[in-house]
Amino acid sequence: MTFDVIIAGFGGQGVLFAGQLLAHAALDAGLETTWYPSYGPEMRGGTANCTVVISDEPIGSPVTERPQAAIVMNLPSLVRYEPLVRPGGVLVVNTSLIDRAVERDDIDAIAIPADDVAAELGNPKLTNMVLLGALLARTSALTTAQVGATLERVLPARHHHLLGANHAALARGAELATEAAARDATPTA
């Protein structure tokens, strides 16, 4: 099993942290993992992205042209990564900031108004966790429970009061993704 995902958005949206959390969780689960960031001046107020690869075998490339999944947190990221997701792959879209629909029909597109959900949960910084929860619900690499457990380990102690909210965000994202999947599966005609 090898799974790869690209997480992309504006700098400051928690793109890099979401990817690191996933990589930490993979390591905790005894898997191989790589986390590869975009780096350098482009991060200054611009876009940020990272690629996470998770595998039960040693990992060759830490980067890919055709990821199995992508989380896109803003419009430029959707434009860039929608065409690249592998057929049958998963695309998690933050519809709070993206008002364009996904055009492809050969991928599993999950629309999550993540900024709104985070605001409802009381902390706008949880957007990345909501989207990560949605990804986990629709892919089989790791579970939200595994990622949640890792969060406790990697979140700096000074932020531990936010643990509950982070767990809630992961769970809410997963819930919304599962509901959406059920809706998609029900013929509406």
Binding site: A23, E32, W35, Y36, P37
Partner: peptide, 10 residues
Amino acid sequence: DGSLGQMMEG
């Protein structure tokens, strides 16, 4: 190279 310096891995 830059990718080894910047990437995280177990």
